[in-house]
Design a binder for these strands. Structure first.
Lengths: 205, 205
DNA sequence: TTCCATTCGGCACTCGGTGTCATTAGTATC
DNA sequence: GATACTAATGACACCGAGTGCCGAATGGAA
């Protein structure tokens, strides 16, 4: 509407934010590391970050969402990776490759990722809450499968396969956390092979 | 210690309980049906049941546990079913059969089961909480697989397979809820076949 | 300077869940 | 029947997560 056609993102800015997702996340994760998730209250976090309690809940919808960094961006990357694969690559191969790609991280990030996943998989309230986040991950897989099989996204096949790949990924993660220095990508591949051979063994009854 | 050797279960009883799991469950489910899960408070439930708030939490550890009837007994039945199967029945076949058996219900129970599952899978807080209950289900499967494969229960193979079977079951349940008059057992079987063929298609690259 | 957009943060409130403890209601013993 | 013991009850206060409301703070633009 303005004469210059300037974007809303640069004009008419109000008060500047006093913190950021990254900063809150950093402060909170440190507290979780030291005192544990359950024994760290939101009041502890906002005190450490020097903001008001009310402000915290404008940055994160819940305490449970803190350990989940920018998951949506990761999902978008995975969606693109799936779309970029040649269409003659078999479905399961494509999914295995993409899941592994999705979990590839620079070596420097691995210790932090380990700590985050340790929380997400071993703190009961986070484990439970994670289910809601995984739903969007499954949706990405289901969309791809539905497109490949030419069936609706919400039909049985895409949903079952999406669930199964999530399931296998989680079992690989659990193994990864169990032993220091384990290779996550290798474990993922092994988990896929397990499922593969389990079902193959079915034949010769 | 008594001269008659009488069991503690019959002697020296104190005040009789003013309610029961079944009654609370019944009262609560009815309220959930009418007003929805989130808009029914624990105070509503205890008022309807005519008990004290504190008493409620002695019967159920949380509001989220209400829709889960006696899950442990069901698990025990599944464990026994798995153990009763001939050891030359292939692993995957045994699991498919047991999961299907686990979900077999008398026709009269089906409408109630539908309502319970509708809550468990479609109310976010219940969906999240369910993850914690599913863990014991997975444990039953993992124990069986570990025994069959002669590997530790917490190793990758049993865990991955347990996760995968849970995943496939859930996708079948979602389909079941989506359409009136669907056959749950048939959907479960179809979901297993989906996973089966997805992995089989992998071969011929 | 004035106006406006936007964020901040205090306050009161709801709801789920827990620890404590006196009370109640049964049974067995004397 | 009085008493002792047992077990469940429920009232109270408390905690922590999360929300609605609203005035105050802070910046750029007119």
């Amino acid at each position: 509407m303005s004469t210059t056609g300037e974007l809303k993102t640069t004009s008419r800015m109000g008060r500047q934010p006093s913190t950021s997702h990254a900063e809150l996340s950093h402060v909170a994760l440190e507290l979780f590391r030291v005192r544990g998730f359950d024994r760290t209250t939101v009041d502890d976090i906002v005190a450490a970050a020097g903001i008001g309690r009310r402000t915290f809940f404008r940055y994160f919808p819940s305490k449970n969402d803190l350990p989940w960094g920018d998951f949506e961006t990761l999902l978008e990357r995975m969606r693109e990776h799936l779309a970029s694969l040649p269409s003659d690559l078999p479905l399961v191969e494509a999914l295995c490759a993409s899941v592994i790609e999705f979990n590839r991280l620079p070596a420097s990030e691995i210790p932090y990722h380990r700590e985050r996943m340790e929380l997400l998989l071993h703190v009961p309230s986070l484990l439970a809450h994670s289910t809601l986040r995984y739903a969007s991950w499954r949706q990405v897989v289901a969309e791809f499968v539905a497109d490949r099989l030419q069936v609706p996204e919400d039909s049985l096949e895409p949903q079952a396969i999406a669930w199964a790949f999530l399931a296998v990924s989680l079992s690989a993660y659990e193994q990864w956390l169990k032993t220091e220095d384990a290779d996550l990508l290798e474990l993922l591949a092994a988990a896929f092979r397990t499922l593969d051979s389990a079902f193959r063994l079915r034949e010769h009854g």
